[in-house]
Every structure is written in structure tokens, then in C-alpha cells.
Amino acid sequence: MSTTTELPPVTPRRRPGARLLSAALRHPAVVPIGAVIVALLIGAVIIAAAGLDPITAYAAVLNGALDPGTLDYTFSVWGFICGMALAAAIPLRMGEFNLGGNGQLVLGGLAAAVIAGNVPLPGPIVVPLAVLGAAVLSGAFGALSAPLATRFGIPIIISTLLLSPVAVAVVSFLVRFPLGEVGASQAQTPRLPEGARMFALGDLSYSNVGLLIIIAMMVAFWVVDSRTAVGFELRVVGANRRFGSYGGVRVGRLAFGAMATAGAAAGIVGAIIVLSSPYRLIDGALISPGYTFAGLAAALLAGGRPALIPVTAILFTVLQVGGTAMERSADVPRQLSDVLQGVVIVVLALRTVIDQRRTGRSSA
């Protein structure tokens, strides 16, 4: 009687080049870079279909945003986009989406306009007080979504999306009637006193101390995210909410803090805009530039990572500032920049859906 032993199957060794390619494709930067490339290609197709030259259009975008004469304005817009990216990135670290940036932004602007315009204190006191008041009001408004999620089961992405238009409408009413400037041609508050304005940075016209405040906020977020227990809990819950809850993380309290901080960040941005030229709150002026949408796109492109937000915000700053120059010199509507931002978000959203389906199949 003879016995035969079966040998285990021999798996072919992969070549070093194939291993390097596979590792490179799994790198976290592949999808964001790919999303940008896809957006640029789609934009090029749209421009070419209109009978225009994509290279000329994109060159006009770069020239318009990086021209030495407009760098002051470009830095200012970059700061606002970074601030709104923080408002989206902080909840994103724990897997939540804050779509209420517009409401939090205008509430911060409202608080800053009321405090700076009515509190008779010296500038070194009233300006920080206005910024602090904006952070408190917008932070409280942002934090509302956390108990709605934990106690009533309303997802944060839904509650922030639905509450934001309410805040925008309330602020619009207040600016048009009780707080509006009498006899003005548009809905706006009275001009702030000279002592209640954001402190200037040398001879710069657009960038001021508010830019330094936003940079300090980004540094603080990076420190908290990478050096504290709260940052670790945010990342753990973002990776696996059930595991984080099982490990002792109080998800409800963490969500409350994250949404309050996100709302405060957006409110500070609104306060900085109002305390800067033209030194008043104008109805619709805070949301019309699209800082909230660009900040959300920058946060998604960075994956919520605080170290990457300043870099990804550069892309959307160039698109936003250079869009006007593209329309002027290349006859391409500046709305194309909004299309490119939307394509980036769609590609990243598709990647998220695919990852969730893969995770569901692997756990099944």
C-alpha cells in the first residue's frame, strides 16, 4: 500500500517592478491626484468642445492666481478656504460630514458685526471679543447636530444640511431689517468703526491678522490630531465606529466636541471676513464666493489630514482666483472652476462608496 503526499501549490513570485507598482497604486495620494487629473481632463474636454484651447485657459488660471499683483488677494482667499476646510475636516476625521458650513459662516459674521459695531471698547479688546463671540455662536449652532444624531438618530450630514439654510435665512432677515443700514442700496449692516476692524499686516490690502489666526488654527488642529488622545480617538472612530465604542470612546461626546469645534472654525472665518474690508456684513457676501464648497473639496481631497489641507487648498484657491482671469482673457466662463471642484468631489465620493462595498463584502 503506497501513500502519496500532496505538495502545497507553488505561488509564482512577483517581480520587484510589479511589487513596486502595486505598492505605489495603494498609496493614499493616488486617489486624490487621480481625482485632480480626471477633473482637469474633463475640464479640457469641455473647453475643447466649446472651440477653445484648454492650454490657454489653464495658463490663464495660473497667471491670474499667481500674478504678483494679485498674490495679496490670493493669500487671503487661501486662508478663507483653509478655514472652511478645517470646518469640514474636523468631523471628517471621525467619519462625519459637516455640510452646514454656510450657516455656521454667516452666524459667525453676524456675531462679529453685532459685537464690533455696538460694544464701545478699544480695538485690541473688541476685535478678539468679536472673534470669540463668533466662535461661541457658530460652535453652539454646529454642536446642535451631535445630540440630534445620538438621541434622535438624525445623521449629522442630514441635520447640518437642513439647518444651514435656516441660519442663512435668519441672518438675511436680520441684515435686511433690524440690523440693516438705513438708506443703503443693498441689505447690509452699518460700516464698523475704525477701531473695531481686523488688524492689518503691513501695507497688504486683503490679507490681515485674520490670515495668521487661520494658520494658527491649522497648526492647533495638527497638534491635536497627531499629539493628543482626542486626535487618536477621532481617527479610531473614523476608521471603525463600533471598535471605538467598544474600546471605551464616548462617541456622542466626541461628536459634540468635533461639531462644536468645526462650527467655531467656520464662525471665526465669518468674523474675519466681516472685520475686513468693506468692514460690514453684506447679505449673501459670505456665501457667494463659495468658500464653504471649496473648503469641503479641499478637506475631502486631503482625506481630513491636517498636514495636507494647506496643500490641497492651494488647488482650489488657484481655481477660484484664476477663474475670473480665465473668463477675462480666455473667454471661458469662471463657472468651469466650480465644475472642476465638483468633479473632484464626485471622484472622491465614488472612491468612498467602492471602499465601503469592499469592506462590506470582506466582512460578510
Results as ranks from 00 to 15, higher is better:
Gly133Thr: 05
Gly133Cys: 07
Gly133Ala: 01
Gly133Asn: 00
Ala134His: 05
Ala134Asn: 06
Ala135Val: 00
Val136Phe: 11
Val136Cys: 12
Leu137Thr: 04
Ser138Leu: 03
Ser138Val: 06
Gly139Asp: 08
Gly139Val: 10
Gly139Cys: 12
Gly139Asn: 11
Ala140Met: 11
Ala140Cys: 15
Ala140Asp: 01
Gly142Glu: 09
Gly142Phe: 12
Gly142Val: 07
Ala143Lys: 00
Leu144Gly: 03
Ser145Gln: 07
Ser145Ile: 01
Ser145Cys: 05
Ala146Asp: 05
Ala146Leu: 07
Ala146Gly: 11
Pro147Glu: 11
Pro147Trp: 02
Pro147Val: 03
Leu148Thr: 08
Leu148His: 06
Ala149Trp: 01
Thr150Lys: 14
Arg151Met: 07
Phe152Gly: 04
Phe152Asn: 10
Gly153Glu: 06
Gly153Met: 04
Gly153Gln: 02
Ile154Asp: 04
Ile154Glu: 07
Ile154Phe: 08
Pro155Ser: 08
Ile156Trp: 05
Ile156Ser: 07
Ile156Pro: 02
Ile157Gln: 06
Ile157Ala: 14
Ile157Lys: 04
Ile157Asn: 04
Ile157Leu: 10
Ile158His: 02
Ile158Phe: 04
Ile158Tyr: 03
Ile158Leu: 13
Ser159Cys: 15
Ser159Gln: 05
Ser159Asp: 06
Leu161Thr: 06
Leu162Thr: 04
Leu163Glu: 01
Ser164Pro: 04
Ser164Val: 05
Pro165Asn: 13
Val166Leu: 01
Val166Cys: 03
Ala167Lys: 00
Ala167Ser: 10
Ala167Ile: 05
Ala167Pro: 01
Val168Lys: 02
Ala169Leu: 11
Val170Tyr: 08
Val170His: 00
Val170Arg: 07
Val171Arg: 04
Val171Pro: 03
Ser172Trp: 06
Ser172Phe: 05
Ser172Gly: 14
Phe173Glu: 08
Phe173Pro: 01
Leu174Asp: 09
Leu174Arg: 06
Leu174Cys: 11
Leu174Phe: 10
Val175Pro: 02
Val175Tyr: 00
Phe177Pro: 00
Phe177His: 15
Phe177Glu: 12
Pro178Trp: 13
Pro178Cys: 15
Pro178Arg: 10
Leu179Tyr: 15
Leu179Cys: 14
Gly180Thr: 08
Gly180Ala: 12
Gly180Cys: 13
Glu181Ser: 10
Val182Glu: 09
Val182Pro: 03
Gly183Ser: 15
Ala184Phe: 13
Ser185Arg: 10
Gln186His: 08
Gln186Ser: 10
Gln186Arg: 09
Gln186Trp: 15
Gln186Ile: 15
Ala187Phe: 06
Gln188Asn: 15
Gln188Ile: 15
Thr189Pro: 14
Thr189Gly: 11
Thr189Gln: 09
Thr189Leu: 06
Pro190Asp: 08
Pro190Lys: 11
